[in-house]
């Protein structure tokens, strides 16, 4: 696999390489995301493969699928998706993230189309995807309704959207903000604003408004004893949603 051309200026490669190393250091700043990654990757792979009638254990279960990773950050999801065969567009509103991700994918020999843009701009340009990944983004955007509409509009008929976010519950306040940011120091203080967390009912309304139908909600909890994230029935803190656009 050869990397295709990116938006990166060679003079900036050194600078963004350093940032990429930071993003990809499993014990660095983004450690919580690295810990969480296998659990959400497995969920995405299994649901997408099942929906499109693929074997999740095959070498490239996502082969031939066009996939958008909205809010791609350093590419922690985009790269595994590309290895599993998807044709990936990674989009991020922060230019620094896009350049960082592009440098890393280039070094890893992966062809990923990273773009410094927004969901709204992509939707306005008429982009269409088999799968839209909307992971840990909605709790950061200014207007959920607008953002979700733009994301939903890019899901092809018969396509899928996966959303991951945090629930606006007292428990989420205790664990995700007090616990993760203040007590454990897993995340920088101010990473999350509790009032922007999204209740499942609100997410459901936004999906419906965008013409999608929700298939399921799935809770995700951290198991401190096993030091691993697990899928659970508890939607009280971290949860994911799976939705389709009827064909």
């Amino acid at each position: 696999m050869t990397a295709q051309s990116t938006t990166v200026d060679p003079s900036e490669i050194a600078r963004f390489s350093a940032i990429a190393d930071e993003w990809w250091d499993p014990n660095g700043k983004f450690k919580p995301l690295h810990r969480f990654n296998p659990t959400r990757l497995e969920y995405i792979r299994d649901r997408v493969a099942t929906h499109f009638g693929r074997d999740p254990r095959s070498a490239q279960p996502l082969a031939g699928l066009r996939l958008l990773d909205i809010g791609c950050g350093g590419g922690l999801l985009s790269e595994p998706m590309a290895r599993l065969g998807a044709s990936v567009v990674g989009a991020d509103a922060a230019e620094r993230n896009v350049k960082t991700a592009a440098v890393h994918a280039d070094r890893a020999g992966l062809a990923i189309d990273y773009r410094h843009t927004t969901a709204e701009a992509l939707a306005a340009a008429g982009e269409q995807f088999d799968v839209v990944l909307n992971m840990e983004v909605v709790e950061h955007v200014a207007d959920i309704g607008l953002f979700m509409n733009a994301c939903a509009a890019m899901v092809k008929p018969g396509g899928l959207m996966l959303v991951a976010t945090l629930n606006r519950t007292p428990k989420a306040f205790a664990l995700a903000i007090v616990g993760a940011e203040y007590v454990l120091g897993w995340l920088p203080r101010g990473t999350h604003t509790w009032s922007k967390f999204v209740k499942p009912g609100e997410l459901d309304s936004a999906l419906t408004a965008g013409g999608l139908s929700r298939v399921e909600f799935q809770g995700v909890s951290f198991d401190p004893l096993a030091d691993r994230w697990r899928l659970t029935g508890d939607l009280g803190v971290n949860y994911m949603a799976l939705a389709t656009r009827p064909a």
Binding site: D25, P26, N27, H34, R35, N37, P38, L41, E42, R45, P56, R57, E79, P80, M81, A82, R83, L84, A108, D227
Partner: peptide, 20 residues
Amino acid sequence: DGHRLGLEAGDAGLLERYQR
């Protein structure tokens, strides 16, 4: 398992799991 999730073999998280 990591390979089937699109993680590369040198992924430090995977190696840590083996060590534990």
